[in-house]
Simulated scan of single mutants.
Amino acid sequence: MWGIIPAAGQGTRIQPLAFSKELLPVGVRREGGTERPRAVSEYLVERLGLGGATKVCFVISPHKADILRYFGDRVAGVDFAYVVQPRAAGLCDALFRALPLISPDEPVAVGLPDTIWFPEDGLARLPDHRFSFLTFPVDAPQHFDAVVADADGRIREIQVKAPAPSSHWIWGAFKMPGHVFHELHALWLEREREDEYLGTLVNAWMARGGEAWNAPHGTGYVDVGTLHGYREAQRLLGSSEPAG
């Protein structure tokens, strides 16, 4: 299974930094009794691996070679590949830069590199055979993409940064079969690449008969891309990470 990490954004909400925002130190990693700072994107790499990914594609901008230097070609049994998004053009454009690597017969998982969420094995709870969103309850869903689902878990709508969303559950990661990834790309091209946000594209795909499912297994979610989120992540990690 492939994991895709869209990491080409400029991180304007938390600048100035002397490095890519995906390398912002948050928490620590303990190795053989030694502690070292842990880059925020390491949490997502770990969660993708727990979810079944053996290969991860970072989508980076031309100015983010520090991510390549940091991770190299392999970490903890996960192989890395890198593709370039020449300019910031939205999440859909970033994700589909990885399309040549993704076989229609292979599942793919996606997360956002400046987020930290729990449980760590959340993606492992999603099936490989259908399009599922791992969702989390938050206090301010208007800042995210709210997921509206029926009683059976079928998603009816993704409300993209709606001022008054009808759900307090937001998506933080997702998994899908490779053929669905290719179907979404074909629809994106048909719609003349007008979708910047994934939610609007998925809504159009569902309107044509596609099915996406809600997986409300998330217990904690923090966007580290703001100073407030960074402080909240430190608090969340302090209460969630095991000692030693």
Rank of each mutant, 00 (worst) to 15 (best):
W2I: 03
G3R: 00
P6F: 00
G11D: 00
R13I: 11
R13M: 13
R13D: 14
Q15V: 07
P16L: 12
A18G: 13
S20Y: 02
L23H: 03
P25M: 11
R30D: 13
E31S: 11
E31T: 13
G32K: 08
G32P: 01
T34Q: 15
R36E: 14
R36C: 12
R36H: 13
P37E: 12
R38G: 09
A39Q: 09
A39L: 04
V40T: 05
V40D: 01
V40K: 01
S41K: 02
E42V: 01
Y43P: 03
Y43W: 10
L50M: 13
G52F: 01
T54G: 15
T54N: 15
T54D: 15
K55H: 13
V56T: 07
V56L: 09
V59I: 14
I60M: 05
K64G: 06
A65Q: 15
Y70Q: 03
F71P: 00
V75P: 00
V75Q: 14
V75C: 09
G77W: 07
V78Y: 04
F80Y: 09
V84D: 13
V84I: 14
A89E: 15
A89Q: 14
A89D: 14
F96E: 01
R97F: 06
L101C: 04
L101G: 02
L101A: 05
L101V: 03
S103Y: 09
D105P: 01
P107E: 11
P113I: 01
D114A: 05
I116M: 10
W117V: 05
F118Q: 11
F118Y: 13
D121S: 12
L126S: 09
P127K: 11
P127I: 07
D128E: 15
T135H: 03
V138G: 04
D139T: 12
A140V: 11
P141R: 07
H143A: 12
V147T: 08
V147K: 06
A149L: 08
D152R: 12
G153W: 08
R156I: 11
V160Q: 13
A162E: 15
P163D: 08
P163C: 06
P163S: 05
A164S: 14
P165E: 10
S167W: 05
S167C: 09
W169M: 14
I170Y: 04
A173M: 07
G178A: 11
G178V: 07
H179I: 08
H179R: 13
L184C: 06
A186Q: 13
L189E: 15
R193G: 08
Y197E: 14
L198D: 00
L201A: 07
V202F: 04
N203W: 04
N203C: 06
A204Q: 09
A204H: 12
W205T: 00
W205H: 04
A207C: 07
R208S: 10
G210Y: 00
E211W: 03
A212F: 05
N214F: 06
A215K: 01
P216W: 04
G218N: 01
G220V: 07
Y221P: 06
Y221S: 06
D223F: 13
G225D: 02
G229H: 04
E232Y: 04
Q234L: 15
L237V: 06
S240F: 10
E241C: 12
